[in-house]
Design a protein around this nucleic acid. Structure first.
Lengths: 224, 224
DNA sequence: CATTCAACTTCAGATAGATGAAGTTAGCGA
DNA sequence: TCGCTAACTTCATCTATCTGAAGTTGAATG
């Protein structure tokens, strides 16, 4: 059963607010807006003005881009206790991408103004934001590396290794189609790649579970 | 002819230091280390400890990743008055990618320590760093969008439109091969794409100059 | 001015991955 | 318990792009 929920305790678990004094957390908690959301709902669109920093109490959210033909690329798949759409809040610009839920979720929005005031008034918080952004840049650079320098099978192998540490990358709503849109390929090609990895003996899988049998082998296929 | 060079004046032109008071700029100038560099020199490797923020007085620099087969992807091509490798300086981690010069260049390095002290002591500077990082995140997101959702011809069209505003993307050392490594394709395919764009009437080109003939048309091909 | 060499272009053949169709599976509501 | 449906798999075919080879150009060098 889910524990009775305390916004202040929750905020303290997020990357952005960990280590903040309780007084700050309470002030933040007062302005945060709860957004219970069903699976498949669009949260915001690229180009819209940014309403604030979104926080996931539980659920799965995709951040994605669409081309004019409607083809989708998922930039990030996010899960419990993760945050998104800080960029618009930070620079006052529009949302850089679209967002929608992949599963029933409990979300919160911290209004842009609260977030920006915190940065201006609190030096330690600004330093924290810089840390988070630096990590984001590293993550994006590594995504570009994957997409441009490695085959689908290698990208799938890398994703499987990531899933071990990142629960957001599996679970309700994270279908083959979603993974395909994240790895810039198709569900069919993911199937083929999984079968190929199984043939080497690195993994076993059925349509519900993928199990890493030989992590060292998988890591070598992933070139990691 | 190049003007007599003043480090302080120069720093004031960079994104990170614009608007800083002269006293701060002088303090920064004192610790900056000059690095005159020839074309083709490697500046640092991915994974090496970060020595500081690099600044380009003049020249062209590529930031790139290599896969185990030696295939290269150029993340950024940088030119006069641009800066790079702040991420390692910001989070204390290793360099996220490799860097090398594409042309003879005059570079400067601002030691990590100076940069980090500035962030901790100067709130306005921290805010500036956050702005720069937010912009970087937007740039990387848009690169991923290009690479995953658009064909080579569209990517080339988008690059040509970018070149209009960004002098770093043309000039000495920025060869077809460099552009190919940036667009995740090959020099041959770039040639084909250029020929295709010429056939539509959007551009004219010979091996040295590419001229945009019909910007509206090029923009529509680029889906912008 | 002749030579050299890197950059560029063109083309033919090869291929990773996309596409579309058909069949399988299993969770879920009636 | 029985369909219904979305997710998944498999396979045959197609295509954008890569690869390798050959030829061209022009700037730099002696």
């Amino acid at each position: 059963m889910r524990q009775p929920f305390s916004v202040v305790n929750y905020l303290g678990q997020l990357g952005y607010f960990a280590g903040q004094p309780p007084a700050t957390l309470e002030r933040i908690a007062e302005t945060a807006i709860p957004k219970p959301t069903e699976a498949g709902e669009t949260l915001f669109l690229e180009g819209d003005p940014c309403v604030g920093l979104w926080m996931i109490e539980y659920g799965r959210v995709k951040i994605y881009k669409l081309n004019p033909q409607g083809q989708e690329h998922i930039l990030r798949i996010l899960g419990d206790n993760e945050t998104f759409n800080e960029i618009g809040a930070l620079d006052g610009g529009a949302n850089p991408a679209n967002a929608a839920t992949l599963s029933d979720s409990m979300l919160w929005v911290l209004p842009t103004q609260t977030f920006r005031e915190l940065i201006l008034k609190d030096n330690a918080f600004a330093a924290r934001v810089i840390q988070m952004l630096a990590r984001r840049v590293r993550g994006l650079v590594s995504q570009i590396e994957d997409l441009t320098l490695y085959s689908v099978t290698v990208r799938v192998a890398r994703l499987l290794l990531k899933q071990v540490d990142d629960p957001a990358l599996s679970g309700t709503g994270v279908t083959r189609a979603a993974l395909a849109a994240h790895l810039a390929t198709t569900p069919q090609t993911i199937s083929t790649a999984l079968r190929e990895l199984e043939t080497t003996g690195a993994i076993r899988f059925d349509r519900h579970h993928i199990q890493i049998v030989d992590e060292a082998l998988l890591r070598s296929i992933a070139m990691l």
